[in-house]
Write a protein that binds this DNA or RNA. Structure first.
Lengths: 346, 346
DNA sequence: GGCTTTTGTGTATACGTATACCTGTCAACA
DNA sequence: TGTTGACAGGTATACGTATACACAAAAGCC
């Protein structure tokens, strides 16, 4: 087993000193073309790769960004992480995913502050999470993506959830729905709170009230959405439409409807939020609110770069405007007229 | 902005030398209880966190394992990564996800050999990928999970795909299907090859032939499965059952069937492979082959630990046995008798 | 109470790279 | 031809931790 090859080995083979190797390999000025060529040749021959540990220690920078997220089994987050990764790679940073709740314990603050990362992107932060403040105190640059804090302690980039919810309420009003069920997300998340409040406000503006007995709260999972939907659908007078905290919950509602033999959209309208790819599959054809995660990622990374360069600047907040996507799970309330056809044959 | 606090700062505050701090914080023998207490107190007061860069450089070990995988937007991989992460965390390792094809280029070999990781787990390797050999040459311990190589160059842990495919063929034969469509995975993946061959062998054993005109090949995506299914379903005599390379492809087939107004399972039986969580949703209720990814992860990590401790031992191969899961997308061929009911109401 | 053995802690150094600084060479210029 | 300056490349050191080794003090032994 050959010992790991270092820049000293390359230097010896090329007949130069170690710093010259460092300069030549990075194309810094102050190296003659001939020497540079000899160094490159030697490095190639030895299959030399610069040690990330040595470089990081010496440069006081790892060129790595941590993305903190709940388990990736929620299909929304890979969709958010991928454009973030791409955007960061484009700027020369590697991305590292850090699980939010490793085996039940909250995220290890130490793991984020041990110098492994130049910055942190938080994606599943709760409204009152102490994590951003902790990171600030320890001097780790960070921004929030997707979710926001109650207090503007950090720069953040989110979706304009109120605007999205308003579009949903406009659609439901236009379709004549009045008994509207709501399965909102967790209230300790900004998305859960903003979407629920935006929907209530939008419906109120159309003269429609949201009734407490038709409202449920569920974490962002299929099973929670399914369970909540069963509760609503077995009521004496079930809702004619169910608005969900996000798409995954909406998929749970569709599962519940399937189990009860309720036809969507004929007997029940279901609306999601996020527009994950699955929502666009003909099998699902979910009417939902589309969020441009490319734009969200671009803006988030921009904000992070700003934090890295100007750590003391005041935090800012940005919003991406979403748009309604009409697919196959909405229809006018029964007896009210025509029903849109299901997805067309391609 | 306070300068990053080091073990020297802690040492000064505690009135000891830097090495004593190192020893005390790690509970090494050779430190008196009184001194240890003073050091811990000082570390707490300064909110000291051991620098990962310094420790890694000094210890020649990062306690990090890289998991190389295609984009996480394929729902299978988060399901595999999560138990791997858990298993590795249990043994004191952090996990880092490395994208297989960052922006189109093959995975950066340098990124895996720059000393950032103590070992590598490859999850989406092709049958003839040069990556394992390269890693061996550069002395980076590694194992394969899920997929295998043609040449046994590395330790690996996979599913017994042939056994799973045989169970599928037994089921189809029992249901009376004879015109069987196959949408197999990429032939340059071991999973694609083994499942297709296993199915053909199993059916042949039951006196059923797999016809070339009913066979398609598709990458492991929903859209590819959907397109292939449309091809098969618009044939003059379409198949009565379609066996898919994996669940995601099967979901594409279900989408295509929905688009064409074909009823599953009455008019078409669809079989997947993997049993991703989505397959169990009542909305989908996919009949498929279940793979125990917990077991796969446990075995994989075991193999990797063995590589870390005995780098020169010969590679080994392990297989996890899968099992058929009967849900709602299979039925006896039409006109043959009774049809199993769809999923029951809960 | 002299001897060895153990124990606690400090000193020196390694890990692999990057960079401030210094030196020597050579071209340009008067 | 002596002076200046640019430039190539070497020397020394920093980054933050871990550990081999030295050394002094304390403890055990007769």
């Amino acid at each position: 087993m050959p010992r790991k090859v270092t820049s000293f080995d390359v230097a010896r083979l090329a007949g130069v000193s170690q710093p010259t190797v460092s300069r030549a390999l990075r194309n810094l000025p102050g190296t003659s073309p001939g020497t540079r060529e000899r160094v490159l040749e030697a490095a190639r021959e030895l299959a030399y790769v610069t040690s990330d540990r040595g470089r990081s220690l010496s440069m006081r920078s790892t060129q790595r960004i941590a993305i903190v997220s709940e388990e990736l089994t929620n299909p929304y987050y890979p969709e958010l992480v991928e454009p973030l990764r791409r955007e960061l790679a484009h700027r020369g940073y590697r991305t590292v995913l850090v699980a939010d709740h490793a085996d039940g314990n909250p995220v290890g603050l130490d793991a984020l502050t041990d110098g492994s990362y130049d910055g942190v992107i938080l994606t599943t932060t709760r409204r009152r999470s102490p994590l951003p403040r902790d990171l600030t105190e320890r001097g780790v640059p960070h921004v929030l993506a997707n979710r926001l804090l109650d207090q503007p302690e950090a720069s953040c980039c989110g979706i304009d959830n109120a605007a999205g919810a308003r579009q949903v309420s406009d659609l439901l009003a236009a379709l004549g729905h009045e008994r509207i069920g709501v399965i909102q997300g967790p209230v300790d998340t900004s998305t859960g709170k903003e979407r629920a409040e935006g929907l209530a406000a939008g419906l109120r503006g159309r003269g429609i009230g949201v009734r407490r007995e038709l409202t449920r709260q569920a974490p962002y999972t299929h099973d929670a959405g399914r369970a909540a939907a069963h509760e609503l659908l077995r009521l004496g007078r079930p809702p004619t439409a169910i608005v969900c905290g996000n798409d995954v919950v909406a998929l749970g509602v569709l599962s519940a409807a399937r189990e009860r033999g309720i036809s969507v959209p004929v007997d029940l309208t279901v609306i999601g939020f996020d527009d994950i790819p699955m929502a666009g599959w003909p099998l699902v054809a979910l009417t939902t609110v589309h969020c441009d995660l490319q734009a969200l990622a671009r803006m988030t990374v921009e904000l992070l770069m700003d934090r890295l360069e100007n750590p003391d600047r005041a935090p800012v907040e940005r919003r991406i405007r979403p748009s309604l996507v009409l697919r196959g799970t909405h229809a006018a309330v029964r007896g009210d007229g025509r029903v849109p056809p299901p997805a067309a044959v391609s």
